[in-house]
Design a protein around this nucleic acid. Structure first.
Ligand code: FES
Ligand code: FES
Lengths: 145, 145
DNA sequence: GAGATAAAAGATAAAAATATCGTTTATTAA
DNA sequence: TTAATAAACGATATTTTTATCTTTTATCTC
C-alpha cells in the first residue's frame, strides 16, 4: 500500500514533468511525457484527459500541440491534482477505514492519524505545481525510476 | 486512496478488538469479531489466518476456542501487523512510486515524504497492540463505523 | 482547402484487491 | 468415544484498479 494510487503517482510525476517543460517554454506530447516518467502511455493519456477536463492542465491538439501549464495553473497546489485523482480520502478519511472520522466517534488511532493527515494536507496545500521546476531543470530530481 | 489497504484496516480493527477481549480474559470467535468491527466474515477469516501463520496472533479450534493474544503478542508493535499485511511500502516506498527511494536519486517530494513516512513509522513502531485496551473497554473508541 | 499531427473519446482487456463458499481438521465437552 | 464447535484450507467469484486499442475530433502547416 502506498499513500497515493498508481494513477495519482503517474499524475504527479507527469505534472512535474510538464510543469518543468512549461517553465522552459515548451508544450509536451503524451508520448514524450510517458517516456520521461516511465508510465504506460494510453493509461497516462486518460489521466491527463481527466485533469484537463477539470481545468488543472492545458492542452492543444494538432501539430506542435501537447500539454502545458499556464501561469495560473503552475501556482495551483498539488492538493488539487491529488483531489482530482484520488478524492479527499487522504485528507479526511479514517486511517482504519471507519465511515467517517470525527472527534466524537474516534478510532483508536484517530489522534495519531490526524497528525499524519495534517502534515500531508499541509504539504500538498503549500506546494505549488511549479515548485520544483528549477531543481528538475538542474537534474536534481528523478521522475522515472 | 488511503494509508492502508482495506485488508490492513480490517486487520488492525480486528487486532484491537481481540486485544481488548484478551485483556479481559476471553477468546473471540471470528463471527463475533466480524460483527464487532463490521467486516465481511470470510474475508476477515483469511486475514487472521495469515496473521496466525506469522505468529502474530494466537488461536485454538473447537468449542470455547477462538482468537486471542498472549502477553508477549500484546506488546508487539502495530508495525508488525501492518508489515505482515501490506508489506513495507508504507515504511520505505517512494511517495511517487519510483522503484526505490534514496537520497542519491530522490523524487521532488522525497524530503517531504520522508518526514511523513518517518512519522507513520515511528507511530506504528511505538504503539503496542494492547495500547488501547483500557480505552476500548471504557468505550472511548469505535471500531465499527 | 488538403494533409499531417496530436489529443479526446469510447470500447475492451488484464491484473490485483476484495469477498464468498464448501469441505476438512483440530479441540472440547459430555 | 462421540457429537458439537470453531478455525484452517482450497477453490471460486466479484469488484476495482490498471492498462490497451481503435476511432474521432481539433489544430496546425502548407
Ligand atoms: S476516526 Fe479513525 S482517524 Fe479519525
Ligand atoms: S524518492 Fe520519492 S520519496 Fe524518496
Amino acid at each position: 500500500m502506498a499513500i497515493f494510487s498508481k494513477t495519482c503517482e503517474y499524475a504527479l510525476r507527469a505534472v512535474f514533468y510538464v510543469a518543468q517543460r512549461s517553465h522552459e517554454g515548451y508544450k509536451v506530447g503524451i508520448k514524450e511525457i510517458a517516456e520521461q516518467i516511465n508510465s504506460p502511455e494510453p493509461f497516462l493519456a486518460k489521466i491527463l484527459q481527466r485533469l484537463r477536463k477539470e481545468g488543472l492542465i492545458q492542452s492543444v491538439k494538432g501539430p506542435s500541440g501537447g500539454f502545458y501549464f499556464d501561469a495560473a495553473s503552475l501556482n495551483r497546489p498539488l492538493a488539487d491534482i491529488v483531489t482530482a485523482v484520488d478524492g479527499d480520502a487522504i485528507f479526511t478519511g479514517c486511517g482504519l477505514g471507519l465511515t467517517d472520522c470525527s472527534e466524537s466517534n474516534p478510532c483508536p488511532l484517530h489522534e495519531d492519524f490526524k497528525k499524519v493527515r495534517n502534515q500531508i494536507t499541509s504539504m500538498l496545500n503549500h506546494t505549488p505545481i511549479g515548485k520544483f521546476n528549477l531543481g528538475l531543470i538542474k537534474g536534481k530530481f528523478s521522475l522515472n525510476k
